[in-house]
Write a protein that binds this DNA or RNA. Structure first.
Length: 938
RNA sequence: GCUCGGAUGGUGGAAUUGGUAGACACGUUGGACUUAAAAUCCAAUGACCAUUGCGGUCGUGCGGGUUCAAGUCCCGCUCCGAGUACCA
């Protein structure tokens, strides 16, 4: 019979489910530990072996922490709003909720199969109204707050109103949209209500504005910057163009500095923090105002090199800038307009593809240099981006390569302001080795001195100021989709009005059709009369509208990242219908201690969630400013695709061994499940797999047909998916768990290779044989010897430090060594095997639990105290010291550890081999590293 | 282009942070047990030379350097991966 993993695993899964073994309590004397995985999107394809990698690692750690005496919160849920279910609905008419429900059921089955210790009583689903009620609530809070720079936190809009009534906005230091004019208290009080609301909207942390957005016509929706890869949509790879639309945005820019600073306080991977730093993109420089000749307006530019102010030979404005219309000289109007409409036609992709070529046009106008009074021509060019900085640059061709290329292309003069540097071929951009020349009062200064001096001068003349700019842009929050959280807003005379917490959740309306309406409104527009009655405080669907009190609701929904920006709090108190999280639960759990997930979320979810956290912290709703103390990125498990090679125009396929040149040969992907561990293809299976292969001819090599291999992302369309269910059936969940850990470091990407699994499976069988021989229980009550105890305690020590360091691959190795040694020592002592079982339980929980019970324990081992290392068993009394001469290892010599250095020297000198190497020379120097090495320099 | 990671046997990967490189596994080869197979166990396995001697030489992407001692530290390259990109 031996190790019957199937029945063991079934038994314990059922036991854990029945007894709710992993339910975490919100009240406990024990210290808490909150460990969480990034929750999955339940896709229709189910899980492949790559998905559970992180869950296995976190589960091992969670189980380990329980043994360490912690009250562990280890929840799981589903990020269940998303595009695939909606697209399936468009194709088939099946409601996304139904698709999602079915997919979740399949995910749950698969997850359960692997023996995860999740507390399912806390499961969350972002698409459930009792969950998204609180997502909507946070949206309302954002709408009701603005960001005060003086207090450096979010404050209620009501404070702002009071302030406007008293002193207008002239003394206010708050984050707001561009183009808000200043007004006095008297002016404010005289504004009509709608004007006031419009102004307030410019301060709210979530606000409605006419924005230029990334529009994807194929998907019928707006995309965020991080949803676009190389100018095409991340999903589907469709072209993306710019389009102006009224959109909800999140003022994440208000938190740029705090998001940056917060990174220093959290234990996240350095590479991921670096990605966030780059994404936030802080740059220090100056704003400079240039007076336009013959106009009231000034052009405001941002520059990181104010020291090069005397090298300016032209200005460049982004073509989208409204100012362009005003200042264009009549003689150049046609050129400018032609250029603007031309740039509008170009997609983002085309624009990026042609980075090398400078395009632009002269406006016919000039600005005046603030210091030397010279006339500087104003150009427009699409290398200047409208939404970064001020959308205008002062072009210094001698110090910036793009300005240089532009100047060369249009024959604009280039002025050299750097001492001893040639700018014949390219711009000089090395600011560290700069001496400014030819620049009036800046001549002779270094970059830093000149920068300080020019900012001082600019401020004095009131035509500039030192400033900081961020690349981070406000996040667009509207999606023209059905399957997302409805935005809890209705419209009165074009102005958005919020619902209140009591009105929530605002549930999705039923629609017949999930596509945008024929008028181009989002899919929610398909609902008949989806509107809000302000009197009954209810959604009005399909009823007569009383125009006095009923207003249309917002038709856009929230993006995918809304629910995931706060879900970790809901786990703390998932069933609470009264509040977001109960006070007691919040105080007890506070924050996530360890968060596991992929680095692909670095500039999306992991940034947005930090932003919401800081906002909720400002309001006193959450107790900490960073929600995840420590984060680990697990690497992806990749697939190994299999290829066969077809001779062009035939049905003949050639074995990899016979393939001499790939020229003219068509590689075709085949299902990896038709290939064995030696890369041999099951040709009969292939014929049955797809009709195109039914009549295929195979050119074998020595009787076998071999495939080519390539490592790629695991995906259904590449036929390289390995299913965890099958691995579990064949080898058991415990083997799968240990094998995924054994594959390599958790953080690293690595290809799946089923062939290696036998090593781990054999280990578990060997472990089983420590307890059973021919189905007979062979554990003895004998006292273990010194050797056995040493093996055990070495293993405890090694495994414990490796778990703490998240080095699970070496843990598995340590277990293997331990079991091999115990086997060769023929050790079956309870005193050794009992703690070893405990040690193994996080990795192979089903097997460990079974053995634990067989050992006569009545309670499960989930909360059993972790075995401690007894160092005294590890101390040796002698050791083989390697002896080397001038660093070259020659021989080893056994010595007692208690020897002093002088005694060691003597023992080594007494050895005949030493004499041979020294040959009469006296040692010049001894290097004796305790417990390690003896090196004699001669 | 910029930023951050990597590069160790046929393969996945170890190496106490400067101290016997290649742990542990896969694979391969040979052997034991079997009528046979499966399963299990044992041995060998970086390369080259010597293998009736227990040994020697070279070896962590490449070229230098520091050190008694370098996979590990320093300088200069090459290649691969990830992120980002007219960011002024």
């Amino acid at each position: 019979m031996g190790y019957d993993f199937n029945s063991i695993e079934q038994k314990w899964r059922a036991y854990w489910a029945k007894n709710q073994t992993f339910k975490a309590d919100n009240h406990s004397e024990k210290p808490k530990y909150y460990i969480m995985d990034m929750f999955p999107y339940p896709s229709g394809a189910g899980l492949h072996v790559g998905h559970p990698l992180g869950y296995i690692a976190s589960d091992i750690f969670a189980r380990y922490k329980r043994h360490q005496g912690f009250n562990v919160l280890h929840p799981q849920g589903y990020d269940s709003f998303g595009l695939p279910a909606e697209q399936y609905a468009i194709q088939t008419g099946q409601h996304p909720a139904k698709t999602t429900q079915e997919n979740i059921a399949r995910y749950r089955d698969q997850l359960d199969q692997m023996g995860f210790s999740f507390d399912w009583s806390r499961e969350v689903r972002t698409s459930n109204p009792d969950f998204y009620k609180w997502t909507q609530w946070i949206f309302l809070l954002l709408f009701d707050h603005y960001y005060c720079n003086d207090e450096d936190k979010a404050l209620p809009i009501s404070h702002l109103v009071l302030r406007f009534e008293k002193e207008g906005n002239t003394t206010l230091n708050a984050v707001c949209s561009a183009g808000i004019e200043s007004f006095s208290a008297a002016e404010w009080n005289a504004f009509i209500e709608s004007k006031k609301e419009e102004i307030l909207l410019g301060y709210r942390l979530t606000y409605l504005s006419e924005t230029e957005v990334n529009w994807c016509a194929e998907l019928g929706t707006v995309l965020a910057n991080d949803e676009i890869i190389n100018g095409v949509s991340e999903r589907g790879g469709y072209p993306v163009t710019k389009k102006k639309m009224k959109q909800w945005s999140m003022r994440i820019g208000a938190y740029a500095e705090r998001l940056l600073k917060g990174l220093d306080e959290i234990d996240w991977p350095e590479s991921l923090k670096e990605m966030q730093r780059n994404w936030i993109g802080k740059s220090i420089g100056a704003k400079v105002f240039f007076q336009i000749e013959g106009h009231e307006e000034k052009i405001e530019v941002f520059t990181t090199r104010p020291d090069t102010l005397f090298g300016v030979t032209f200005m460049t404005l982004a073509p989208e800038l409204e100012l362009v219309q005003k200042i264009t000289h009549p003689d150049h109007k046609d050129d400018v307009e032609a250029y603007i409409s031309e740039t509008k036609q170009r997609t983002q992709r085309e624009r990026m593809a042609d980075v090398k070529n400078s395009t632009g046009v002269f406006t016919g106008s000039y600005v005046i240099h603030p210091f030397d009074g010279s006339r500087i021509p104003i150009w427009i060019g699409d290398y200047v981006l409208a939404d970064y900085g001020t959308g205008a640059v002062m072009a210094v061709p001698c110090g910036d390569q793009r300005d240089y290329d532009f100047a060369k292309h249009f024959d604009i003069p280039i002025k050299n302001i750097f001492k001893g540097v040639s700018i014949e071929k390219e711009a000089f951009t090395d600011k560290e080795n700069t001496t400014i020349d030819n620049s009036d009062f800046l001549t002779g200064l270094s970059y830093q001195e000149a920068t300080d001096k020019v900012i001082e001068a600019l401020e004095e003349k009131e035509c500039g100021t030192g400033t900081i700019n961020y690349r981070l842009r406000d996040a667009i929050f509207s999606r023209q989709r059905y399957w997302g959280e409805p935005i809890p807003m209705y419209y009165n005379e074009q102005m958005p009005q919020p619902l209140t917490l009591e009105d929530l959740p605002l549930e999705l309306p039923e629609v017949e059709n999930y596509l945008p309406t024929s008028e181009g409104a989002p899919p929610l527009g398909n609902a008949e009369k989806w509107a809000w009655d302000t009197v009954s405080k209810k959604v009005v669907v399909n009823e007569k509208i009383d125009h006095q009190t009923v207003y249309p609701l917002e038709l856009n929904t929230m993006p995918g990242w809304a629910g995931s920006s706060w879900y970790f709090y809901r786990y703390m108190d998932a069933q609470n219908s009264d509040v977001f999280v109960g006070k007691q639960a919040m105080e007890y759990w506070r924050e996530v201690d360890l968060y596991l997930g992929g680095s692909e979320h670095a500039t999306g979810h992991l940034l947005y969630s930090r932003f919401w956290q800081k906002f909720l912290f400002d309001l006193g709703i959450v107790p900490v400013e960073e929600y995840a103390k420590k984060l680990i990125n697990q690497g992806m498990i990749l697939g190994t695709s299999a290829f066969i090679y077809r001779k062009p125009g035939t049905k003949t396929y050639v074995s990899k061994d016979l393939l001499e040149t790939e020229e003219g040969i068509e590689p075709i992907r085949v299902d990896v499940n038709l290939v064995n561990a030696s890369d041999e293809l099951d040709t009969e299976g292939l014929r049955k797999w797809q009709s195109q292969f039914e009549t295929a001819e195979f050119e074998m090599h020595e009787g076998v047909f071999k495939v080519g291999r390539e490592v790629e992302k695991m995906s259904k369309s590449k036929y390289n998916v390995v299913n965890p269910d099958e691995i579990c059936n064949q080898y058991g969940a415990d083997t799968l768990r240990m094998f995924e850990m054994f594959l390599g470091p958790v953080e690293q990407a690595k290809p799946w290779n089923t062939a290696g699994i036998s090593g781990v499976h054999n280990f578990l069988k060997k472990y089983w044989r420590l307890f059973f021989k021919d189905d007979q229980w062979i554990v003895t009550e004998e006292k273990p010897g010194k050797k056995e105890l040493k093996v055990l305690h070495e293993t405890i020590k090694k495994v414990t430090t490796d778990i703490e360091n998240f080095s699970f691959n070496t843990c598995v190795s340590s277990f293997m060594i331990c079991v091999n040694e115990l086997t060769s020592l023929n050790c079956h002592s309870r005193e050794i095997l009992s703690p070893l079982t405990l040690l193994l339980s996080p990795f192979a929980p089903h097997l460990a639990e079974e053995i634990w019970q067989k050992l006569g324990n009545t309670s499960t081992l989930i909360n059993q105290p972790y075995p401690e290392v007894n160092e005294s068993y590890l101390i040796e009394d002698s050791k083989n010291y390697p002896v080397s001469f001038n660093g070259k290892m020659r021989f080893t010599i056994p010595l007692a550890l208690s020897l002093e250095q002088e005694e060691i020297k003597k023992a080594v000198l007494d050895d005949a081999r030493t004499a041979e190497y020294l040959q009469g020379k006296a040692p010049k120097k001894w290097i004796i590293v305790p417990n390690k090495i003896i090196n004699i320099v001669y």
